[in-house]
Design a protein around this nucleic acid. Structure first.
Length: 948
RNA sequence: AGGACCAUAGCUCAGUUGGUUAGAGCGCCACGUUGACAUCGUGGAGGUCGGCGGUUCAAAUCCGCCUGGUCCUACCA
């Protein structure tokens, strides 16, 4: 083995071997365990969030596989409608100077497929680098043939049950992308805006109570004035009671619109009058429904002003009895241009009462960045009410459990206030809606055109055209858990692996995806999609900021694994930016944060870092310091293994069953191993990967390396040690290491496999050529091998060694200088332990002599420390700094006094003694005794030195 | 406006049902290349557990209020 751990040399090799040997596929034996990967965008690349999530899923999967479960980690990618379409659109524009419309639908979607074939392997290659043990043989894509079939089936069945309908409704419209988007894809941003107060003249000579011949309405969106169909006042408002049923003349347009009474109008706000524009505002739409107002649309698909408005009734039928003419001056203007013109024209007409500046929030499309417009269009919807009920119940009754539990509230809050789901998108990339129209606009929903004809008795001479729209991406990914397993066929895989065991996902996607999966899966399989949902937080940068290209703080997990030089990193962060003016600042910050670029750390260290930071449900600030630390940890494990191999390879390790003698240290480390195994297993069961990784880290570093390896040296290197004892120690070294590797494998698959291949043959667990650690058994703790006596003994030994190290440090004695030490005031057990541990003490504490002093009174002047009741003394051969030592002792005495004072106060408190449990009181008494003994010793010492 | 979560060492974080001399890693200081490892070893400094009040014999931990931060939902005519 190389002297230092070099991850790049082992990682690729092992992944390929595992994959070739088919270790990722389900074993077909044991209780099923399954996880569905949240499908990443097929053309995307792996970001820190994926890497984090994949680490968790892989750790769970490898762990359960080792436990003997029939384990499936289902992999696949998502077609990601808008994102992919936009990406390819930009690419085609840049490379060919053409828009998608230049190409036409078919040629353009061909381009996307081409791009998918070209770049679709990128993210799956990166997934392999992370060590993900997914079953590649079952890889799926949300637009592959089987999935298409599942999507159609679900759509048709929902339609036939009356749960999908089509209608003209107000939806969130993206004027740039020309498609409807869901509420969830809208990002509300705070803005400063203007608030214009307009006068609307009353018609027919009517006046208000106050004698005015106009009403004042206020708006942040003057351009929608063109589509007003009423002015509302509150039905309780005495100021306007007489005006309800009367009319105003809509300025600039000249349309006569009614004054209606509706509780939407708030008497406290502004004048108490509100303009109502049902086709351009969600609240007004509701008012329109209650007051039976016409819907007057004044925008084109681009959100420019129409030449002539369109009027509809609430069922979406065109209305012909309304004057839809609009002033020619605004035709073709954008929303924002029209706003300025209308304000100017109102002012010129003397109808602008005043303007104020207000803070408001505006909806932006999270993909296009454009301001989203409520817009009246024909869309397909899923009626969610009846789907939501069982989905809520499934979480209430515990069929689905969120970890951590508080996310259940978030889920309930959303589910109880669910609006019908708009599932149609005016895009070209996606699952085309299986609906056909005849020349009269009648709609026929079926699995294909032939079925549509058949079902509705349409002859071949009726021409049918398919709906142009595609389905929301989340409609297909909502079928992920059962669609990937072959549904609607009744497959073996579906019977075995559904419901899945756990979904690992970020909280940001609970609404988009988790809730919809639950609804659709329950409706079509009668089963929940997963029994548990493990919700993790976002990976942020070290300052707690979201990682984003525009902030220039993105880390690429692959760069953390392989390393990257500074120039490449700067180039990566500043190249191809949306806002190039930020490049300079980003370059500077990057040079400052990573003056040397990023060193390679390897996949295992990255995985371990994620796991150690995976505390329940909160965001993680990614810490480079910890990544370095865990790379060092890998190196530590590597070198400890080298030590074991150097001492065990080619030696008798007792694997043939020959007689062995186990030292106290051997029994102690075996005992601690059992406890660690139990601890790690329990933490994994609770999804506390931070605890699992920490328990492992501490055991490997602080116990196995720091103590056990050191304690093995006197046995292995001492010529007087018996062969049985040496065999016992070699056997323990090898077997404990082998168990450590199994225990660590789910978290750090590569390094453990690499070392295991060398260690397992010595431990007798290697099954020959082609064997892999990943299919070996997870270590089970054996209570019977927990050895309290050995533990107490080693604790004593550690106590003495630490005491001597302390004395060395205090007296400034070089660590390597051999010392003489004395033990005194102990009991018979202490004496026995001294004899049993003499070689260990000599070696680890660097002692040339260690004696038992029967009569403490004969003690020479010495630096002293307590181990239990026993004193550990290092005689001071004169060379001490008297003043410094006195000062140190005084300080130490003070410290003890404070502690003693605190405890005495506690014990002096009658109610404490009376009310606290006896065990707690006794503990305080014991503490007091120990502290007092220590204090006496310190005082004695001080007096001796002072007397010199 | 409603809700959720968070605040512990310079930094990133643990701290189970109230009882610890409040812990880890990184960073810092001192010493040290002894035959696995300087990506290391040994020792050390560093915290009034955001603030105030309450419950209790006992509060980092439970309750209330306040401050600061993150996020979600809603509203903003």
């Amino acid at each position: 083995m190389d002297k230092t751990y070099q991850p790049e040399q082992i990682e690729n090799r092992w992944y390929q071997r595992w994959e070739e040997d088919g270790h990722f596929a389900p074993s077909g034996e044991g209780e099923p365990y399954s996880i569905m990967i949240p499908p990443p965008n097929v053309t995307g690349s792996l970001h820190m969030g994926h890497a984090f999530q994949d680490t968790i899923m892989d750790t769970l999967t490898r762990w359960r596989r080792m436990q003997g479960r029939n384990t499936l980690w289902q992999v696949g990618t998502d077609h990601a409608g808008i994102a992919t379409q936009m990406l390819v659109e930009r690419k085609v524009a840049a490379e060919e100077g053409k828009s998608r419309h230049d190409l036409g639908r078919e040629a353009f979607t061909d381009k996307i497929w081409e791009w998918k074939h070209e770049s679709g392997g990128h993210i799956t290659r990166q997934l392999r680098r992370m060590g993900a043990s997914v079953d590649w043989s079952r890889e799926r894509f949300t637009m592959d043939d089987g999935f298409y079939k599942a999507v159609q089936e679900v759509f048709v069945q929902l339609f036939d049950k009356g749960l999908i309908y089509r209608g003209k409704r107000l939806v969130n419209w993206d004027p740039t992308l020309h498609t409807a988007i869901s509420d969830l894809e809208v990002e509300n941003r705070d803005q400063q805006g203007q608030f214009w107060h307009f006068r609307y003249p009353l018609a027919d000579g009517v006046t208000t109570e106050a004698g005015l011949d106009y009403l004042v309405v206020a708006t942040t969106r003057p351009e929608t004035l063109l589509g007003d169909s009423a002015v509302a006042v509150n039905p309780e408002d005495p100021r306007y009671a007489s005006l309800v049923g009367k009319f105003v003349d809509l300025p600039l347009v000249g349309r006569r619109i009614p004054i209606v009474a509706d509780e939407h109008a708030d008497m406290e706000k502004g004048s108490g009058c509100v303009k109502i524009t049902p086709a351009h505002d969600f609240n007004d739409y509701e008012v329109g429904k209650r007051c039976e107002l016409p819907l007057i649309n004044v925008f084109s698909r681009d959100a420019t002003i129409l030449e002539r408005a369109e009027a509809f009734d609430l069922q979406g039928r065109p209305l012909s009895d309304i004057d839809t003419s609009l002033p020619a001056a605004y035709a073709g203007l954008s929303r924002f241009e029209a706003r300025e013109r209308i304000v100017a024209d109102m002012e010129a007409a003397g109808l602008l009462e005043r303007t104020e500046t207000v803070n408001n929030t505006l909806p932006f499309g999270d993909r296009s960045g454009d301001v989203i417009e409520p817009y009246l269009t024909d869309q397909w919807f899923v009626a969610v009410e009846n789907l939501a009920k069982p989905a809520i119940a499934a979480v209430e009754n515990g069929d689905i459990e969120f970890v951590p539990k508080n996310y259940e509230n978030m889920y309930f809050a959303w589910m109880r206030d669910l609006q019908d789901w708009c599932i149609s998108r005016q895009l070209w990339w996606g699952h085309r809606i299986p609906a056909w129209y005849d020349a009269d606009g009648n709609v026929y929903v079926a699995r294909n055109e032939a079925e549509a004809r058949d079902k509705h008795g349409l002859s071949d001479d009726v021409s049918l055209t398919q709906d142009e729209d595609v389905l929301d991406t989340w409609f297909s990914s909502g079928l992920w858990t059962f669609g990937t397993l072959g549904w609607p066929e009744k497959t073996e895989a579906l019977a075995t692996f559904h419901p899945t065991s756990v979904l690992v996902t970020g909280f940001d996607i609970i609404f988009f995806w988790v809730a919809r999966m639950i609804m659709l899966t329950l409706a079509f399989t009668g089963e929940v999609p997963f029994k548990q949902v493990y919700v993790h937080g976002l990976v942020r940068d070290s300052q707690g900021n979201k990682m984003s290209k525009s902030k220039g703080n993105v880390l690429d997990p692959i760069d953390l694994i392989d390393g990257i030089d500074l120039e490449s990193l700067v180039e990566k962060r500043t190249g191809n930016m949306m806002q190039p003016q930020k490049a300079k600042a980003i370059a500077k910050a990057t040079r400052q944060e990573f003056p040397e670029g990023i060193e390679p750390h390897g996949t295992d260290a990255l995985r371990f870092t994620f796991l150690s930071q995976a505390t329940t449900g909160r965001d993680i600030k990614f810490d480079m310091g910890r990544l370095d630390g865990y790379r060092n940890f890998c190196n530590k494990l590597w070198n400890a293994s080298r030590y074991v191999l150097m001492n065990a390879e080619g030696q008798d390790c007792g694997s043939d069953g020959s007689e062995v003698e186990l030292s106290l240290a051997d029994r102690w480390i075996v005992s601690r191993l059992q406890q660690t195994e139990a601890q790690v297993t329990r933490a994994m069961e609770e999804y506390r990967f931070d605890h699992a990784s920490q328990a492992l880290y501490e055991f490997i570093w602080n116990e196995y390396c720091d103590w056990y390896l050191e304690l093995s040296k006197p046995v292995l290197w001492d010529d007087d040690a018996t062969p049985q004892a040496q065999r016992g120690t070699r056997r323990t070294l090898v077997r404990v290491l082998e168990a450590i590797l199994r225990l660590a494998h789910p978290m750090m698959p590569y390094i453990t496999e690499e070392i295991w291949q060398r260690v397992a043959p010595l431990a007798g667990t290697h099954r020959g050529e082609g064997d892999s650690l990943m299919v070996h058994a997870w270590p089970e703790a054996d209570e019977a091998r927990v050895d309290e006596a050995a533990t107490r003994n080693i604790e004593w030994l550690k106590g003495v060694i630490v005491a001597i190290r302390n004395i060395r440090a205090e007296l400034n004695i070089a660590p390597g200088k051999p010392l003489e030490a004395l033990l005194t005031k102990g009991d018979a057990t202490d004496r026995e332990r001294l004899e049993a541990n003499r070689p260990f003490l000599a070696k680890l504490a660097k002692l040339k002599r260690l004696d038992w002093l029967d009569d403490p009174a004969e003690a020479p002047l010495a630096a002293t420390q307590l181990v239990g009741d026993m004193e550990v003394m290092v005689p001071m051969a004169g060379l001490i700094d008297k003043d410094a030592e006195l000062a140190r002792l005084e300080k130490e005495i003070d410290k003890q006094d404070k502690l003693i004072g605190g405890i005495e106060k506690k014990l002096g408190n009658e109610s404490f003694v009376a009310k606290a449990p006896e065990a707690v009181v006794q503990k305080e008494r014991d503490k007091l005794e120990d502290l007092s003994a220590n204090r006496r010793l310190l005082v004695e010492q001080r007096d001796k030195i002072a007397a010199l």
